[in-house]
Design a protein around this nucleic acid. Structure first.
Length: 324
RNA sequence: GCCUCGGUAGCUCAGUUGGUAGAGCAAGGGACUGAAAAUCCCUGUGUCGGUGGUUCAAGUCCACUCUGAGGCA
């Protein structure tokens, strides 16, 4: 309890893409003297502006934004762990300046990295990963069986086809001698470690059909605002296509078009489709998080003023640390 | 007017010699610890266009009918 109250508090805004997170966060920041920390795995890259729905300088209205535009596209690897380091230092800075950090984003794992005591104890090990991939490709069943014997807890969580996670779990064991589950296998703080920050989490959601309609519309707007040229510029640089940034929605589909694998119309449809699927996955992720206080913003235009006022009060109470 | 081929799940279509239907996509649900806008898993009842008939049994055969596309006049 003593430790808990000493932990630094932050405000988080989460929810699926196209759910007014950006607008809300900026309005909130204006009222409570906040600064924004983006928890978004694509907005971190320079040059991916339209497709990642980065707020423009005008939209930011002078509110400082962190973790936007801080990596080149050809960054070979970024990770939740690295995000935590960068975001944590940004947040500490903000707090030192007496401002309120507002973490806003749709990358659920990134938010959890800041608000749960996630392990991230064993860094990526290229050799061990190579070997695990070979092992899995050679005989997936046996690779899974080995994980079962070496780390039964993680194996039980994972489906035998979940190559990426099985490989990672084997990698962790092979280079550390410890099972991945030994570093804390859940989000429930069962290991008793302390999370970096203590959040109030505001969740935005809306009627599914409405959300999908907004997504479709937003993709059309992105195209009008020059997404094609933005994607083309990135395509022309000829980056390694296995780079994480190259797989972002809105870009990979247009790359397929540039390569003649589909028409432009089909590519745009695919962007909408993939964005809808993505929004659904985000909702699944956030739904199980019982810390989130949800707000249905289906009728955003009518409710936003009241909602912003209310959330500004909630956030300020939270930051003063008066736990009920 | 005649001929041909269609009409089966939200969409595109399968459906063997008659045994009350099944794939892909969409959609829904779930998972998620150094790739997370990534990756992985689960879920298919629908007046088989309609009405009658043959049959123990019809999406499947027959008749009529509605409807779409194409062809010939």
């Amino acid at each position: 309890m003593e430790e808990q109250s000493r932990r630094q508090r932050i405000v988080c805004i989460v929810g699926p893409t196209a759910c007014h997170k950006t607008e809300l966060s900026i309005e909130l920041a204006k009222r409570i003297s906040g600064e924004i920390v983006s928890a978004d795995s694509v907005q971190v890259y320079f040059g991916m502006d339209i497709g990642s729905a980065k707020p423009t300088v005008e939209e930011r209205q002078g509110i400082p934004h962190h973790l936007i535009d801080c990596l080149p596209i050809n960054t070979p690897e970024f990770s939740a762990s690295l995000f935590r380091q960068l975001a944590a230092s940004a947040i500490n800075d903000i707090l030192l300046r007496g401002k309120i950090p507002i973490v806003v984003g749709g990358s659920g794992l990134y938010v959890n990295a800041l608000t749960y005591p996630l392990g991230f104890a064993v860094p990526k090990d290229d050799t061990a990963r190579e070997n695990a991939i070979c092992e899995y490709d050679h005989n997936a069943k046996m690779a899974y069986a080995r994980l079962k014997s070496v780390d039964p807890i993680t194996a039980a969580r994972l489906h035998p086809n979940d190559k990426k996670r099985i490989v990672r779990a084997l990698e962790v064991f092979d280079c550390s001698g410890q099972p991945l589950s030994g570093y804390g296998a859940d989000f429930q703080n069962s290991e008793g470690r302390e999370a970096p920050f203590e959040p109030i989490i505001i969740g935005l959601t809306m009627d599914r059909e409405q959300l999908y309609a907004r997504i479709n519309l937003r993709v059309d707007l992105m195209m009008e605002h020059g997404l094609l040229a933005e994607a083309r510029a990135i395509y022309d640089v000829n980056y390694d296509r296995t780079l994480p940034a190259m797989k972002s929605i809105g870009y990979q589909q247009l790359f397929a078009y540039f390569e003649g694998n589909c028409t432009l119309e089909e590519a745009v449809e695919k962007i909408k489709q993939d964005t809808r699927h993505f929004a659904k996955r985000q909702l699944t992720w956030f739904k199980r998080d019982e810390r989130i206080v949800w707000h249905d913003v289906t009728s955003w235009d009518d409710q936003k003023n009241d909602l912003i006022e209310q959330l500004a009060r909630d956030a300020q109470v939270w930051m003063k640390g008066k736990t009920p």
